[in-house]
Design a protein around this nucleic acid. Structure first.
Lengths: 202, 202
DNA sequence: CGAACATTCGACCCAATGGTCGGCAATCGT
DNA sequence: ACGATTGCCGACCATTGGGTCGAATGTTCG
């Protein structure tokens, strides 16, 4: 539990601001994941950071914005860098799954899955939904391309993508990174399971 | 939206009581699923039923008990009847998946998945967790048995079960029964997807 | 009929929590 | 050095929503 990250002395003003802001987000995400969004009060987060509640409002407009930021950061882990081009469907699929599993076990990714979009206020919710839709389309496109190039078994891309997302999104509910299975191992098993179902053996 | 189910005249007193109680639960489950548990007030449920809020307390101790009942009913759909014996692993697996998919798209099943156990008060939460654990073990046992009898591909039952539950538990987040895919079709696709990954071809 | 009981609800309570305000202190720019 | 700005917080506010109370209205049954 890193907490005393607060009174860290860094010169640049706005840099310090951003840094502290980040610390708040991270702490919030962790707390949301532990106790659930609705059972986490701003006072809880403040206490965790050893600061007063109003201080949080110096960095954020309101609770909703904090959650929104968590979601944004989670989604960004997937949408920010493009997938490797010039490889066939299965290869892209593998890469996507590995990346997504890693996202989902991170604090922001877990928050994304556990808290869900219902908690967000309409405006932010729309933005998040758009981001998730984009990720959804990424996977669907991969599958479609894979079917076209013959590396993936013919199937309905929509349903199949949903199944795959289901497996991965459920990970935060049962997986604990301090257990016997490492994240690498987990990602590998996840890839294997999907591959056995979808990869077309030649 | 069936609402005027309230002033239904049935003779038996306790039967009427149970009936009305049931209507409250069903309405609550549907509302929880639409707006989310925390965004559903007891006043909302009461309004939906065209009754006053205190009336709900005639049938339930508190909000938590209503949610608990939803979970119990969902879990019961799986645990109440035993699986067919005398068949091999894959056959049982198929049966289990079909049954579970149907549970999960029902109002109570959806509530079970969407609301999660964090919302429940400790005592009720423990009971629900126990029920879920039981279901978890059912699937793990099926897989273990299937591996033993050679009908299922060797794999880690724990991880594999979690993957399968993931797929199915995620269904409420994306599936809408009024779309192009029927529940039967959905269950079938679900079985297929898992089978392709796990069934051992002889 | 009338006593007990069941059902319903208007009015009320109150604890929790998100959010605000005004001021104090530290820091910065000139 | 000193006014302006930033960072921080104690005290406070306002609303929401779960939950209670007591009374009014049926309903059952001896």
């Amino acid at each position: 539990m890193q907490k005393r990250a607060w009174s860290l002395d860094i010169q640049d003003r706005s840099e310090q601001f951003q840094l502290k802001r980040q610390v708040v987000i991270e702490t919030a995400a962790r707390t949301f994941n532990e106790r659930g969004f609705y059972k986490t009060t701003l006072a809880d987060i403040a206490e965790e950071l050893h600061i007063a509640k109003p201080t949080i409002y110096h960095y954020f407009k309101n609770k909703d914005e904090i959650l929104f930021e968590c979601h944004r950061l989670g989604i960004g882990q997937i949408t920010d860098k493009p997938l490797p081009a010039g490889v066939n469907g299965v290869a892209q699929l593998k890469e996507f799954i590995e990346r997504y599993v890693r996202m989902v076990v991170s604090d922001f990714g877990t928050c994304l899955v556990l808290t869900g979009t219902i908690a967000l206020e309409p405006q932010n919710r729309d933005v998040v939904r758009k981001g998730r839709k984009e990720i959804d389309n990424m996977l669907r496109d991969i599958i479609t391309r894979g079917i076209a190039d013959g590396s993936i078994m013919p199937c309905d891309p929509k349903t199949t993508a949903s199944f795959i997302f289901g497996q991965m999104n459920w990970i935060p509910y049962w997986y604990h990174s301090d257990g016997e299975v490492s994240i690498d191992e987990l990602a590998e098993r996840q890839v294997e399971f999907v591959m056995r179902s979808l990869a077309r053996q030649k």
